[in-house]
Amino acid sequence: MAASAHGSVWGPLRLGIPGLCCRRPPLGLYARMRRLPGPEVSGRSVAAASGPGAWGTDHYCLELLRKRDYEGYLCSLLLPAESRSSVFALRAFNVELAQVKDSVSEKTIGLMRMQFWKKTVEDIYCDNPPHQPVAIELWKAVKRHNLTKRWLMKIVDEREKNLDDKAYRNIKELENYAENTQSSLLYLTLEILGIKDLHADHAASHIGKAQGIVTCLRATPYHGSRRKVFLPMDICMLHGVSQEDFLRRNQDKNVRDVIYDIASQAHLHLKHARSFHKTVPVKAFPAFLQTVSLEDFLKKIQRVDFDIFHPSLQQKNTLLPLYLYIQSWRKTY
C-alpha cells in the first residue's frame, strides 16, 4: 500500500487533545456564526451592495467568503475584532481572482478581468477605488493598515499566469505559485494584525505553500471532471502515471504514490512551519489557523491510503469550527 511504503514521513496525529474535556472553552465561534445575517447573495444585490440601503460592502465580502471560501471565513471569524473586516476584504479579493479561471470560457475574457483587478489595485493606492464592493472594502483595508501593494499585485499576476490550462511542470513550480498567492495572502494578513517579524514571515511562507499544494490536491477530482489535470508532471512521470490515469480515476498503487509524494511535500512544509513556532510572536498565530484544515485533509487522505478520489475527501468536517476554536484558544498553530 502507498501509505505503508512511505509511512515514515507522517508524524503522530495532533488533533487529539488529552485532558481537553476537563476545561470548557468559552463560547465564541458558534455564537458569532449565529449572529451573522444570512440572506442569499443575488446578482441584483451584488450590483447594489455598495449603494445606500443595501447590506453594505462589508456584508457582501463576508457573504462571498462564506459561500466560496468557507474555511477562510471560519478562520477570519476568530481574528481580533479590529482586524476582521480587513481580512474579510482581503480574502474576498482572493476569491474574486480565484473564480475568474473557472467562470470564463475564453482566456481573453479572463485576461480582461485580471486587467480590471490590476487597475483596481492601482486605483486603490491612488484613493480612487471603483464602485465595486470588494474594491471598496480592500481600499478601506489598505488605508487602515498601510498594506504593501507588492503582495496584492503578486496575487493578481500569479492568478493571471495561471489562466493557462497547463499542469505544473514540477513541484517547485506549484510551490512558486502557492508562494505568490497563498503566502502573499498571509503576509498581508500579518500586516493587518500589525506583525512585522521575520520568523512570522518564514512560517507564512511555508504554510502558504502547504495551502497551495493541498488546494491543488483537493481540486483534482473537480478538475478531472472537466478533463483537466494540474498535478506536477515530474512526480507523475517518476511513477509512470499519465494524465489519462487521473481522468479515468485510476486507483492503482502508482497513482496513489503520486498523491503521496505531493501530500508529503505539504506535510513537510507544515511540519517545518511549526518547528520554530517558539520564535514566532503569539500575536501572529491567528493568521495561521488554516493549519487546522490543512492537517485535517492530510490526515483524511492518509486514512484512505492516498486515494484522491475517495468520497470521504469531499465531505465537510462538521467539527472544523470546534477544532479551529480550540486551536485559537490554545494559542498555537
Rank of each mutant, 00 (worst) to 15 (best):
D165K: 07
T57L: 14
R303I: 09
T215F: 06
A284M: 02
R303V: 08
V241T: 09
R249E: 12
D164Y: 15
I301A: 07
L319S: 10
T220M: 11
I192Y: 01
I192L: 11
V104E: 07
L319T: 10
G212W: 00
P130V: 13
H310I: 01
A200G: 04
P80Q: 05
I195N: 03
W151I: 06
Y323V: 11
K67I: 11
E160L: 13
N176H: 13
T279E: 13
H131Y: 14
D58G: 11
L320E: 04
D305K: 07
M112A: 11
K228D: 09
T215K: 05
D58S: 12
G240W: 03
S312D: 13
E63M: 08
L198V: 08
Q243L: 05
E179R: 00
P321M: 06
P321N: 02
L62W: 13
D102W: 07
P311D: 11
A49Y: 15
A49H: 15
V241E: 02
S312R: 11
K140P: 01
A135G: 12
F246I: 15
D69N: 05
D201P: 02
P321Q: 03
S293P: 12
L238P: 03
F230E: 11
G53T: 11
G51Y: 14
Y177M: 08
V100R: 05
I213S: 02
P221Y: 09
L152H: 03
E160P: 03
I195V: 15
L247A: 10
R249N: 13
A54C: 13
R68E: 05
H267Y: 09
P52Q: 08
D164G: 12
L247E: 03
C61D: 04
S225H: 15
F306L: 02
Y168P: 14
Q290G: 10
L74A: 05
P129W: 04
V282W: 09
T332K: 12
M153S: 13
S242N: 05
H199C: 08
S105V: 14
D234I: 00
W55R: 14
V156Y: 04
R218W: 04
E71M: 08
I301F: 02
D197E: 10
W55M: 15
H206V: 01
V241D: 01
N128T: 15
Q115F: 06
G51S: 14
Q182Y: 15
D257N: 11
F309V: 01
Q314N: 10
M237V: 10
L247W: 04
M237T: 10
R274L: 00
L238S: 14
W329R: 13
L298H: 03
E122I: 12
Y168W: 12
N176V: 13
D201T: 04
A263I: 03
A54N: 14
A266M: 01
L319H: 08
L268K: 08
N94M: 04
K67S: 08
V282T: 11
R150E: 05
D296S: 09
R274V: 01
V304F: 08
P311R: 09
Y222H: 15
K196T: 09
L231E: 02
T189H: 12
Y333M: 12
Y260V: 05
V258C: 14
V95R: 03
L62T: 12
I259M: 05
G212Q: 03
Q314C: 10
L185E: 04
E122H: 13
D164I: 13
P221C: 13
H239I: 00
G72H: 12
E179I: 03
N254T: 12
S312C: 12
G110H: 10
D201W: 04
L313K: 01
M233W: 07
R84G: 03
L90D: 02
T120I: 15
L268C: 08
D245E: 10
P130R: 06
F93G: 01
M112F: 14
E71V: 10
C75I: 15
T181M: 05
L322Q: 03
L247F: 07
V304H: 08
S225G: 09
F88M: 14
E173G: 07
L217M: 09
I235T: 12
G212M: 01
K154S: 08
K149L: 05
I136F: 13
K172C: 10
V214W: 02
F93N: 00
L298V: 04
K149D: 03
S293E: 10
P321D: 01
D123G: 08
D234P: 03
I213H: 03
E82D: 11
Y222S: 07
T279Q: 13
I124Q: 00
Y177D: 05
R113L: 08
L270I: 09
E96M: 11
G194F: 00
N170L: 03
M237H: 09
K140T: 04
F309C: 07
V304N: 06
R218G: 04
Q243R: 03
A135K: 00
L79K: 05
I155F: 06
W55S: 15
M237D: 04
Y73S: 00
K67V: 08
E295T: 08
G110I: 04
H272K: 14
R84T: 06
L193K: 02
G110Q: 10
H272C: 12
R159D: 03
V134L: 13
A287M: 04
N146K: 12
L322W: 10
H223E: 15
L147W: 01
